[in-house]
Design a protein around this nucleic acid. Structure first.
Length: 585
RNA sequence: GCCCCGAUAGCUCAGCUGGAUAGAGCGUCCCCCUCCUAAGGGGAAGGUCAGAGGUUCGAAUCCUCUUCGGGGCGCCA
């Protein structure tokens, strides 16, 4: 409908230009849904926009535009109001036709082709595989998955990807943590490093390792700890302590066995993450390994490309990328003086590789704590001759957890955190998915665990699901009451839908495609959540005000057609958010 | 110190990218099941849109400054 109005206004403006009434640039034609019904259904501010350039009074201009509008069956009334708004009232038939559009399209109602098949990559979660996902990752998972699904519905070709940080120091700390716990399981007496991963899952991995391999990797605690610098609690430095232990693990185990222990930890945790996300309704096209990037030489290639293009220099034994040339606040190290490539180096390679794979848009969903990272990655893309505007980084603010009114401190390494799995089990996937996505991503989120865990009706997701279940319930009652439903009859009689509640519902249904499109393009799933709330509210109000299962066939069939359309849109919208649409509750 | 995000009803948040009288949920207070699920509906109260300037027909929305929160500023990942 919006689109139609844009067209007829555009025609009117062309007419005015042709006869010389207008001779200025034409801005985009903005059509808005009115807030107040007395202003019609849609409003256009074009006359006020043009008034400046045309040096004419907005209201006079509006009158000329209205006079030049072509005839349209779906427009019932056009009025000029306020400072120069052009208000459109649509013919009831235009809204009534929505019922058929919804029922015809079914699951496809709300889809569009605005993405034109463009290839978009969405990378999200990408948490280090050093432990189970916690509730902080849950927000990125729900948000990223929904943004990806929205883009798909809007006609983009979407590639969902998880970047697996299976290389680097954090993973070495995990491998060493697993090994030390394993030694403990084998009967060695040792002091666990304060900087190691202390979660229970490390014990589990260690026990599993012992079951698989017996004492193959066993060394005496004395051999392990001899000449290792003291840990922090003992007056030393925890970083030096853990690094020495990593080196010792490599030395005692040898490269092959170290890798086996390393991979044991990695694989167990990655499998857990994968299963966790799958159960959460989050699926990926690809799990992309950082290690493969190192081993394929892609990282070296990226550094070489920066070198040959002259964006790299050496200082104090390290190799630096001159990111300040591209607006970053300081230059960044890509190869340390000990010859180790930094995480940033593989990230440059990874993003270079993303562009090389031919994605027209690349979306990264990151935690807000990584925001300082954006300029340097964009700088790297620019230095490599790629277009940094292809990359969109969506920063998701933290979810601050509250339990019994107090903030929950989160730390992966100390093992004190609430896992995503734990949350899902207690709240349910539906509530968790919905809750995470209800707020726009740059908004801090207070996640009240007690509220979320309580199966109370405070939880907004039940309200939507209930609306869906209610429609299903009505349809179940149909036969019991000896009535029948014929869609063809209902669709022929949609002009019976004249009650104010029905009109409100029809308007809401007609908005759905606009809502989905806007949510997709702006990466804002929360607008879908808010929309569904309104639709459900319109329905519940209608339900209370009118009977659907009435004697009169034409009225009954048209009303049932309407509520079935509502059910369809609720199901489509809930599906987009990863929430189920139950038939009964 | 510099950078990012935020500040709207008692609480948690929307506000269609500058539009008409600023909206929901929860909480509080009234009311509605002889009726398709009351996990529902209707109504009331509740606001200096953090503050001060500016831009214009028009500002919660854009710009500047100030105040207050959260986060980030490693040859960590």
């Amino acid at each position: 409908m919006k689109h139609h109005l844009q067209e007829i206004i555009s025609t009117a403006l062309s007419t005015l230009r042709a006869d010389g009434t207008l001779d200025c640039e034409l801005p985009d034609i903005q059509i808005e849904r009115t807030r107040d019904r007395s202003h019609g259904d849609f409003a256009c501010n074009i006359a006020m926009m043009l008034a400046k350039f045309a040096k004419r009074k907005p209201r006079d201009l509006a009158e000329q535009i209205v006079a030049a509008l072509p005839q349209s069956d779906s427009v019932a009334k056009v009025e000029i109001a306020g400072p120069g708004f052009i208000n459109f009232s649509m013919a009831p038939s235009a809204f009534q036709a929505v019922v058929e559009q919804v029922l015809e399209a079914g699951e496809a109602y709300g889809r569009s082709t605005i993405g034109a098949g463009k290839r978009v990559q969405v990378e999200f979660v990408s948490a280090n595989p050093t432990g189970p996902l916690h509730v902080g990752h849950g927000r990125g998972a729900a948000y990223g998955a929904t943004v990806a699904d929205l883009l798909a519905v809007a006609g983009f070709q979407v590639h969902r990807e998880y970047y697996v940080n299976d290389a680097g120091r954090q993973m070495d700390i995990l491998a060493t943590s697993v090994w030390l716990r394993y030694l403990d399981v084998c009967g060695e007496k040792l002091e666990f490093p304060s900087n190691g991963y202390k979660g229970d899952y490390v014990w589990d991995i260690a026990k599993s390792l012992q079951q698989d391999a017996g004492e193959t990797y066993r060394h005496s605690a004395t051999d392990v700890f001899t000449d290792i610098p003291a840990d922090e609690p003992a007056g030393g430095d925890k970083e030096l302590h853990i690094d020495a232990l990593i080196a010792r693990a490599r030395e005692l185990l040898g490269a092959d066995d170290y890798r086996k222990v390393f991979d044991k930890g990695l694989n167990v945790i990655l499998a857990d993450i994968r299963e966790d996300l799958e159960e959460f309704g989050v699926a990926y096209e690809e799990w992309y390994s950082e290690r493969s990037l190192m081993e394929s030489g892609a990282v070296d290639k990226a550094i070489e490309r920066l070198q040959t293009s002259g964006h790299v220099y050496e200082e104090k034994g390290a190799l630096w990328f001159r990111s300040t040339d591209f607006g970053d606040e300081k230059d960044r190290v890509v190869v340390r003086d000990n010859g180790q490539k930094t995480y940033f180096a593989s990230d440059i390679a990874y993003h270079m590789e993303k562009i090389e794979r031919g994605f027209e848009r690349v979306i990264d969903v990151w935690g807000a704590d990584h925001h300082g990272y954006v300029p340097r990655v964009k700088a790297a893309l620019q230095a490599l001759g790629d277009d940094p505007s292809k990359l969109d980084v969506l920063l998701v603010q933290f979810a601050i957890l509250y339990r019994s009114g107090e903030k929950v401190q989160m730390s992966t390494r100390s093992g004190s955190f609430v896992t995503l799995r734990e949350l899902r089990e207690e709240v349910g996937n539906d509530a968790a998915r919905f809750f995470y996505v209800m707020r726009k991503c740059e908004q801090h989120m207070d996640f009240d665990l007690d509220l979320a865990k309580s199966q109370s009706n405070d939880n907004p997701v039940y309200y939507l699901q209930y609306a869906h279940a209610r429609v299903c319930s009505v349809m179940r009652q149909l036969e019991e009451k000896g009535f029948s439903y014929e869609q063809a009859v209902g669709l022929k009689q949609v002009d019976k839908l004249t009650e104010s509640h029905e009109q409100a519902l029809l308007v809401s249904l007609s908005r759905y495609p606009e809502v989905v499109e806007a949510a997709a393009l702006e990466h804002e799933p929360h607008v879908v959540a808010y929309y569904l709330r309104e639709l459900a509210n319109d329905f519940h109000t209608y339900y209370n005000a009118h009977q659907f299962l009435v004697e009169e066939s034409s009225l009954r069939n048209s009303r049932l057609a309407l509520i079935l359309a509502v059910r369809q849109v609720l199901a489509n919208g809930l599906g987009l958010l990863g929430v189920s649409a139950p038939e009964s509750m």
